[in-house]
Structures are given as structure tokens and as C-alpha cells.
Design a protein around this nucleic acid. Structure first.
Length: 528
DNA sequence: AATCTGTTCAACCGCCTCTCC
DNA sequence: TGGAGAGGCGGTTGAACAGAT
């Protein structure tokens, strides 16, 4: 049976004898036992009916509203309307600065627990908060700002540092976490205001004296090229880089000194991945706090869906902060220094503002532009860097990148997969030959053919030796790259940028090496 | 003035948990 | 104990609006 729907004028006045419904043609409706329930915007008449009903019967039993009031709305819709718009004591209007502050704090601690957050903000609804947050995310993303104020990060970090020795100092290595077959996101259940955070542990790194703790802010989950920004900020602060990289045990990095917001932001934006620095160079500078549970890091992206404090059962990411998914290199200060002091780094920092809110495409363009400006100098590095750093590997087994590469492309990679996610996110158009970009990589060998050994810890070398040199020495491969990038970006953009963006692609690979915990030296051999 | 693009926010949907029988 | 219903929650959508071109 379909109940007849009457129409209601725009002002809510009923045009027929029933206040219910109407407009179902416009907004559709769901069938509930043959009754077509109205959907879409509520009219004032419907609101009045609902308010009247609640006054008489109280909240709850929403499915009974329809029966008792004749309001042709499903119970859920009634509940939502009441909770979000009709219930008393609702605050309307923009959030106050205090409310915003609370939201930010709460989100840092809770993640996307809108309802729980709303409980701390009288008069505000979860929907409001959710909308606000999503808007804020976009806004800050556009502005290239971190989601959370640095003070909050620092505060939270300090709390983390103090409150979670078991996590930071745990025995379970990051390898274990990452590589266990049954890896799963660790749950960190905490009291809402007693924050614990989870940061994966890395092997061969001391719980103290590493930058992991110091940089264990999600904001620092970025990528190496952007570290130049960090350096720059350090310079502005008159703080030599060594102060950071060689910090004493338990010494928090002096981010609290970066009071200047602009600089502060630079710092926080600049460090995506966190590195653990081993001063004796025998250990790798490993990405630390590559915490996929972080709201900032998932799939190499900034995710706002999770509290960086690690509260709550952690969720899959929902969005954002598409960080430039570029390289992650894991090595000791030499790499830092060489990178920082390389012409490339200088130009990167000085010429090309990092696309903070960029996604893969932006990252590509950014990288392309950056690298194009440093081509001359950079090429020098390229031609001299095809070396193997076996000394860094110790007894590490060498993995062929053909194997690892598949891992990189695995969107389920627990570390979020800079490369896999990049490809998967972008889902490049099918290249002309019908294969995907990934397939091109494998099948046509424009990346991997030939024997090649490179040091994953040396992005400059990888960029040079693996990709650039290959490309430089083989017009064919360069063309392949060009084609692939064109496919990825679309013909127009690809034409413009592809001759540069193969460097970026190499960064993805590099990033993936680190993220997938590859040995420091990756051997590209025996590949098609 | 028309069109395009971005933003905001109300509402819906699907999934999950809880409660009751 | 398990199934059904109700409610809650978070993600997503799309209309309305505003600003830019």
C-alpha cells in the first residue's frame, strides 16, 4: 500500500489535510512496509510535528514517530533531525575560537569520534563538528598548514613520551610489526584525555636518543625533499641541523623553540617521516613514527581520520593531506648533509614551495618543477652515483627490487605504501598498449632492466643511478617513462612534465624502499 | 551577465553495537 | 544463544550558495 502524499508549500503550510510528506516526488522516498517515507529536506511543518511528538512522548522510539504522529519519515531521519536541529539548547552559528580549540584538541586525542567530541561541546552536534573538521581539513590543506597546531603536537608528544614507555620502549621491533604476516593496526585504547600513542618500533634503535621520539609527531610524516624546509627553519632559528640530528638521549628536539608559527609550520610540514639517527652510521636512519595509525599518515597521506595521539581504536584513513609522496631515504647524516647541501636541496627549498596539500599529481608536478630547476647540478650527481654501498648493508640480504616493487604496489602494505597507494590512488589511465603503468614498470623494464645496485639510503644516488642514469643512457627508457607519465598525468600534462617527472617516480620507488623496510641496498638485477 | 569553481551543511546510507525476546 | 529491531556513529552525497573568472 502506498500512502498518498500531500504537498506542502514552501513555507511549510500544508496544502492538504496532511502535514506529512509530500515532495516525495522531488526527494524520493523509501518504502517502509509499503509506506513511502519522505526523504530530503525537512519542512517547518514536519519539524513542528516532530517537536510536538517529542514533547509528548520524549526522545527515543523514533520508529514510533511515524505511527503516532503521521510523520512520514523514518525513525532514523527523525532522530537525526531532532538531534541536529530541533532539540533544545542547540547552539547555532559558527564555532567560537574556544570551541575550535576544543575540537582540535579532542580530534587530536580521539580522532573521528564525532559523537564523543560532541559530548564535550554542549549544544554542538556530531554532524556540526564533523562538517567543521572536514572543512577545516580542506582549508588547512589548501593553505599548506598542519592540521594540528604545533603546540598541541608538542604537548601531545610530551605526553606520549612520558606516558607510553611500554610502547616506545617495547621490544617488538618495527620489522616485527611490519613484516609479520598478520600485521594489523595496533589498537591503543586509552582514556580520552590520557593520551597514549603508538609508534612502531624500529630495530637497532634505542628508545632514547633518537629523533623518533622527538619527531614523533605526525606532522613530521613527510618526505625527504621537504626536509630542506626543516633545515631552513633551523637556520632561521639559528639552530644547526646537528642539534637535531645528534640530539642527546631523551632530548626532545627543540621544536618548542620554534615558536614562530610560520617557521613552526614549516618545520612540521617539512618533516613527514621521522628519522632515527644513529650517530655511528652503522645503523640506518629509519623512518620513525611511520605510524599508519597516525592521523597524519596513511598511504603516505595525511589522514585526519585518526588521532595523532593514537587514541581510540584506529581506523583506516579517510582523507587527506596528500603529502608529496616522494622519497624517504634512510641513512645517516651523510645523506642528510649531502642532500641538504646539495644544489638540489637548495633549490628545492628556495625555489619551490612544497606542495603541502598536494596529492600525487601535485607531488609530481612539484618535483618535476623542482628538479627541472636543478637539472644541471643534479646531473653531476647522477653520473657519479651509480655505486653500491655494500658497506652499509652488513649482512643484509639483497632483495631484488622486482620483488620489492610488487610490494610497493601493494595497497595493503602495512606502511601505507607510498608507491602502491600512489598508483592505486591515481589509477593511471590505461597506457596505449593496454597495460597499466605498473605493468609497464615491470614488463617493459624502463625502470628495472639492467643490473643495478643502489643505496636506498641515498636518494640522490638512487635518483641518479637508478633512474636518471638509466634514462640518460637510454632514450628508449626515457621515452617509456615519458609515456608512462603521460599516461598517468594525461597527455597534456604528461607532455609538459614527463621529461622531469621520472625523477619523481624514482622517488616513489625510493620511498617505497624505506617504507617497506627494504634493506639499505637494493639490488636491481635479473629483471626483464 | 553567465558560467565555472569551490564551500558549506543538511541529510542519507551503511555498518555496527546494544538490547530485548 | 541467536535473531530481530532500535539506535548510534561515521562516511558520503548533493543541493544551495558564494566567489571567481
Amino acid at each position: 500500500m502506498v500512502i498518498g502524499i500531500t504537498n506542502e508549500s514552501e513555507d511549510g503550510a500544508l496544502s492538504t489535510d496532511s502535514p506529512l510528506s509530500n515532495d516525495s516526488d522531488n526527494y524520493g522516498g523509501s518504502s517502509n512496509g509499503g509506506v513511502v517515507l519522505k526523504k530530503g529536506p525537512w519542512t517547518s511543518a514536519e519539524d513542528a510535528i516532530l517537536v510536538d511528538y517529542v514533547k509528548k512522548h520524549g526522545e527515543g522510539n523514533w520508529n514510533a514517530v511515524q505511527k503516532h504522529s503521521g510523520l512520514w519519515r523514518c525513525g532514523k531521519s527523525c532522530r537525526l533531525r531532532w538531534a541536529n536541529h530541533l532539540r533544545p539548547n542547540l547552539k547555532k552559528g559558527a564555532f567560537t575560537s574556544e570551541e575550535e580549540r576544543v575540537i582540535i584538541e579532542l580530534h587530536a586525542k580521539m580522532g573521528n569520534k564525532w559523537a564523543r567530541m560532541a559530548a564535550h561541546l554542549p549544544g554542538r552536534t556530531d554532524n556540526e563538528i564533523k562538517n567543521y573538521w572536514n572543512t577545516r581539513i580542506k582549508r588547512r590543506q589548501r593553505a599548506g598548514l598542519p592540521l594540528y597546531p604545533s603546540e598541541l603536537c608538542l604537548q601531545t608528544h610530551q605526553e606520549n613520551h612520558l606516558s607510553s614507555p611500554g610502547i616506545y620502549g617495547g621490544d617488538k621491533g618495527f620489522h616485527d610489526v611490519l613484516q609479520s604476516d598478520d600485521y594489523e593496526t595496533p589498537d591503543v585504547m586509552v582514556d580520552s584525555f590520557n593520551i597514549l600513542s603508538y609508534t612502531p618500533q624500529f630495530p637497532n634503535t634505542s628508545a632514547s636518543g633518537s629523533l623518533s621520539n622527538g619527531f614523533g609527531f605526525p606532522q613530521f610524516h613527510s618526505y625527504v625533499p621537504q626536509m630542506v624546509g626543516f633545515q631552513k627553519c633551523a637556520e632561521e632559528l639559528d639552530e644547526p641541523m646537528s642539534d637535531y640530528s645528534g640530539g642527546a638521549a631523551d632530548e626532545a628536539p627543540p621544536f618548542d623553540r620554534a615558536q614562530d608559527d610560520a617557521c613552526d609550520n614549516k618545520v612540521f610540514q617539512s618533516f613527514g617521516l621521522c628519522f632515527q639517527y644513529d650517530p655511528d652510521h652503522t645503523k640506518k636512519l629509519l623512518p620513525v613514527g611511520v605510524n599508519q595509525d597516525s592521523p597524519f599518515m596513511s598511504n603516505g597521506n595525511f589522514s585526519a581520520s585518526k588521532p595523532f595521539a593514537g587514541a581510540e581504536k584506529l581506523e583506516l584513513p579517510s582523507l587527506q593531506y596528500e603529502e608529496t609522496g616522494l622519497g624517504v631515504f634512510n641513512n645517516a647524516p651523510k645523506s642528510f648533509d649531502s642532500f641538504f647541501h646539495s644544489p638540489l636541496s637548495g633549490q628545492l627549498s628556495s625555489c619551490c614551495p612544497s606542495p603541502r596539500s598536494s596529492g600525487l599529481l601535485e607531488a609530481l608536478l612539484y618535483e618535476a618543477k623542482s628538479l627541472s630547476k636543478s637539472d644541471t647540478q643534479f646531473s653531476d650527481k647522477v653520473t657519479s652515483s651509480t655505486i653500491s654501498h655494500g658497506d652499509l648493508t652488513g649482512g643484509s640480504s639483497l632483495n631484488t627490487c622486482s620483488t620489492e616493487f610488487k610490494g610497493h604496489l601493494d595497497p595493503t602494505s602495512p606502511l601505507g605504501n607510498s608507491m602502491g597507494s600512489s598508483f592505486n590512488r591515481c589509477t593511471p589511465p590505461t597506457p596505449t598498449n593496454g597495460s597499466t603503468l605498473e605493468e609497464k614498470i615491470h614488463d617493459e623494464g624502463w625502470i628495472l632492466d639492467g643490473k643495478m645496485t643502489f643505496d636506498c639510503s641515498r636518494p640522490d644516488e638512487i635518483l641518479g643511478s637508478c633512474w636518471l642514469e638509466q634514462s640518460a643512457s637510454s632514450s628508449k627508457k626515457r621515452c617509456h617513462v615519458t609515456d608512462a607519465i603521460s599516461s598517468l598525468l594525461g597527455e597534456d600534462m604528461g607532455d609538459e612534465y614527463s621529461t622531469r617527472t621520472y625523477e619523481s617516480v624514482s622517488n616513489w620507488g625510493l620511498s617505497s624502499c624505506a617504507w617497506n623496510n627494504m634493506p639499505a641496498v637494493c639490488q636491481m638485477s635479473d629483471l626483464p
